[in-house]
Every structure is written in structure tokens, then in C-alpha cells.
Design a protein around this nucleic acid. Structure first.
Lengths: 262, 262
DNA sequence: ACAAAAGTGTTCCAGTTACACCCATGA
DNA sequence: TCATGGGTGTAACTGGAACACTTTTGT
């Protein structure tokens, strides 16, 4: 929704294209050089930041919806995207009045006030998805009703709209618990990457340090990565070897080990 | 919904009490004496079995809805109940025609045919919850539109309605992956239980055998259970010691270990 | 005394942790 | 030649797996 006209049409006719009562909220983790940040946006007229999100079209699958919403915000397709929980308990989510007021603040920009029975005024459950991107690669394209965006480090995140702090906490816990089972970083690192690169990534995501030698052993033993016969030139230092993800091995593990069905 | 009148009211006015487009499906694992079964129901006029489920009332939280639905089916409150995934991709879920026909078969019993725009005809995403009960303790109370129910062992489960086979597969995978982190069995075993009892439970759920000694060591090391100073009389055999779950320890682990936020 | 079920301890192996020195590169 | 960063191996430890005989109890 990049024009006033599109927004007006969305408010008026959105319920014919999208499912009411349901939204998708995306926790987009942006990594770069030892920093792990989260993409937040600020809607028109709001003080608090919130997670980017969207609605599910009636004619697309849930997975398609998540990918579309992410692509709309970040211009990135084909990335690692993972459903992790449905949020439907928070008090602020239960209150129609609060939902309505929040939306009305935003839509004031286009001179619209939602009625009590408007589809956007109603209680909405949110399905949480998380993604992992290199935030330098991302071109964030704020929509018409979005005043701004920012990448904030996890520790710096202030109180957000709705229950979005809770959503982020759960996303982070899920990301951390899945990092050794999923080829996390596949969409984040170049196809061929060095050990120090993936090492820094894991240290940042898990928030702790790992011994270089043990870390290499672990990833090789798990079969998550494969060492190549090439090296990278990195200036006035020793050339590190290149590695690549072993996706076949990962898929095999996923099929066998019924542990992870996600 | 136990009377014709209630069903008619549900069809006519359900959309004012419940959220459309969303349902909850419950995978109720029933355990007893080395058998792990799943509760299935058959709606009026249907050949295939399906999972028991329900809708989310507008004025209850998601968690409340899941507990209420389960209590309606099994008369059990306060049990272990866990959200595990949202299903919104399956082709059969995307098709309005199929949804409508399935419902119409059921509601034929009360002489109702749903129109194309009826709230029950629309696409519905389903939030999966699983629970674990002793199936001998459960009084299943089929609702008016339910012709019958059964407990089936996992290996015996035939093709079900909708994507319910997929839901069961994911539920089982989740149950198995969480069994050492959650006090699974708390609502299933008596407050004080013997080691052979919990041992049999774990063997059945995980579908494999464990050495008695190692199994005891593991559960004690994890702090999941605590040995008591009492024994149980079990007839013409040696009296086994009693154990109890160490819930405090479990809660502590849950708070510290950010691994499990579920 | 016997049948049935539960209790118990040790060894071995594998996987994880801890740890420090040498090498390659470009300026 | 020097500064920087990357590469590499071994020893100690810990957690998990394998394994069989003894004890209790009631009939």
C-alpha cells in the first residue's frame, strides 16, 4: 500500500481480499558484522514502534502470505522464513477498543475513522514468523502509512505496540533453539563463506563466544557445512578457507530425525 | 452443542459468538498400559474420521478456547495442553467448495444447508493443540452432530478428513521432541508414581525401549522427577519406590534455559 | 520354593571442553 | 619485519550406552 488511494481501497474493501481476525507479524532479524538487529516500523501518528506485518489473502496459502508480506517490506524473496507461534492471549489483543484506536491513529492520515463493526476494528490473532537477513542487503520500503523504520539491537528494544515484545522474545528463543538444526545463515552468508564469518554469526545470534577449533569441529560433525578447496583473499592476512552449506545432508537429517518437523 | 436447537443456533448465530476463519484442532493422545492412542470423532454422515475441534469465542483468549474445547470433549480440565502449529497451506483447506460440502454433509442432520457466504463455508485456518490423557479416565461426550468416537493407535490411523493426518504427524513429532523438557505425564500419571510406570510411558510415546537403569539416571539428572521414601504394594512382587515430578525444578529450567519458550 | 517384577553399579566409548602456538599475507 | 587474523591438534572430562545379577513379595 504505497498510495493514499490504495490505503483507502484497503480500508474499504480489504475484507473481500483478506481474512479478518488474523494477521502475520514478522520478526526480521538483521545480521551484519557481529550485530543482530530487528527491523521495526513506526506507523503514522504512533510513538511506539511495531513489527512489520500484514494480512492473509483469501486465495493464498499461509506460507505464501508470509513470504509475500516479507517481500513487500524487504524486497527479498526466497529467504529463510519460519512460523513459530500464534499469539492470541494478550490483553491488548482482546480489546476491540484498543485495536480500533490504534488503527484510527494510523488511518487519520488518510482521513478515515473506523466504525465499531469495521473488519479492522475486530479482535485479531497474530501468527508469528521470523526471518534472518543481512540488514545491509535489505532495501526497506516503507508503505504509505509507515512514517519510518529502524534496525535496533535486541538489547535496545523499547516497549512496542501490542504484544510485540513478547513476540520478539519467543522468536529469539526459537531462532536460538533451531540454529544447529536448520541451515540458518544460508540466506545470510554468501554461498561460499569463511569459518570466521559463520563463527561470528553464531556467536552473535547465540550471544556467547565459542572456541574456533571446537566450533569448526561441531559444524563439520553435524554435517551442516563442507570445507572447500578454495581460499579467500582478505587483505594483509592469512587467507581463510571457504566453506559451503551441505543442504543435502541437512535435508536427509530433517527427514530421518522426526524431532524437527518444522 | 448437544441438542438440535443448539446446533441450529450455532449455524445461525455462531459468527456473533465465534471468530470465523479460525479453528482449533486437538490431537488428544490417550495413553494407557503401553498403548498410545489418539481420539478421533466421526461427524454425522461422514465416512472419514477427524480430530475433535472447535472455534474460538470472541471474548476468550486463545488458551482459554483450547482448554474449553478440550473440556467439552473429554470432561477433563487442567491438563497439559500445548499449541504446536498453524495449518493454513493444505489444498483442502483452501477450497471453499470442499469446506462447504463437508459441513453440509454434517448439518444435513438438522436440515440445514449452508449458503456460499455462510461463515462456516469460508476458508478456515486451524491452530493445532495437543494434549495427553489417560484414555480410561476420559468420558468422551459426543456432541449432537457427532456419530461416534474411537481411540486409535497411531499406526492404525486411516486417512482422515482435511489435513488431519498431517496435523497428527506434527503433533507427534512435537510431543516427542518436548518430552524431556516438559513434565509430560504430569496430568497422566498419579501424583506419586513408580519408575516402571513412567518408564513404560516414555517407551510408548517415543516408540522405543530404554534401559531401566539409564532411564532412571537420566530423569533424575534432568531433575524432572524426585524419588520418595515410600513404596507401592503391587501384589506378589517386589515393592517399587514412588516418585513425583519436580515441578519447581522444571519451572526454573524453563525460565533459565531460553531454549524452550513454549 | 517359585514366579514375577523391581532394584542396583560399573565399564566403555563418544562427544564436548579447554587450551596455545605457528603460519600466511600485504603493507 | 611486523601486525593482524586464521589455521591447527591433543589431553581431560563428562554424559550416554551397554550390560546381569540380586532382592522383594505373595501364593
Amino acid at each position: 500500500m504505497n498510495t493514499r488511494q490504495e490505503v483507502l481501497d484497503f480500508v474499504k474493501n480489504g475484507h473481500t481480499r483478506f481474512l479478518p481476525h488474523l494477521s502475520i507479524d514478522c520478526v526480521i532479524f538483521g545480521y551484519h558484522a557481529h550485530q543482530l538487529k530487528i527491523l521495526l516500523i513506526r506507523h503514522h501518528g504512533h510513538e511506539k514502534w511495531s513489527l512489520p506485518g500484514g494480512y492473509i489473502a483469501r486465495d493464498e496459502t499461509l506460507t505464501q502470505a508470509a513470504h509475500r508480506i516479507l517481500a513487500e517490506k524487504t524486497q527479498i524473496t526466497d529467504l529463510f522464513l519460519q512460523q513459530f507461534y500464534v499469539f492470541g492471549d494478550s490483553v491488548v489483543r482482546m480489546s476491540r477498543i484498543e485495536t480500533q484506536q490504534t488503527h484510527n491513529t494510523t488511518f487519520a492520515k488518510v482521513g478515515v475513522t473506523l466504525g465499531d463493526n469495521h473488519w479492522l476494528s475486530e479482535r485479531t490473532l497474530s501468527i508469528g514468523y521470523y526471518a534472518l537477513v543481512d540488514y545491509l542487503d535489505v532495501v526497506v520500503t516503507p508503505e504509505f502509512l509507515v512514517d519510518g523504520f529502524c534496525w535496533l539491537e535486541i538489547k535496545e528494544i523499547p516497549p512496542l505496540e501490542y504484544d510485540h515484545n513478547e513476540i520478539i522474545a519467543k522468536a529469539l528463543a526459537t531462532l536460538r533453539s533451531q540454529i544447529y538444526q536448520q541451515p540458518i545463515g544460508y540466506s545470510l552468508l554468501p554461498e561460499k563463506f569463511t569459518l570466521p564469518e559463520i563463527h561470528a554469526l553464531y556467536e552473535t545470534i547465540l550471544g556467547k563466544q565459542f572456541d574456533r577449533r571446537n566450533f569448526r569441529k561441531k559444524l563439520l560433525t553435524l554435517g551442516l557445512i563442507r570445507q572447500l578447496d578454495e581460499q579467500k583473499r582478505i587483505g594483509p592476512h592469512r587467507s581463510p578457507f571457504l566453506y559451503e552449506f551441505d543442504l543435502e545432508n541437512y535435508r536427509k537429517a530433517l527427514e530421518e530425525g522426526s524431532v524437527l518437523a518444522f
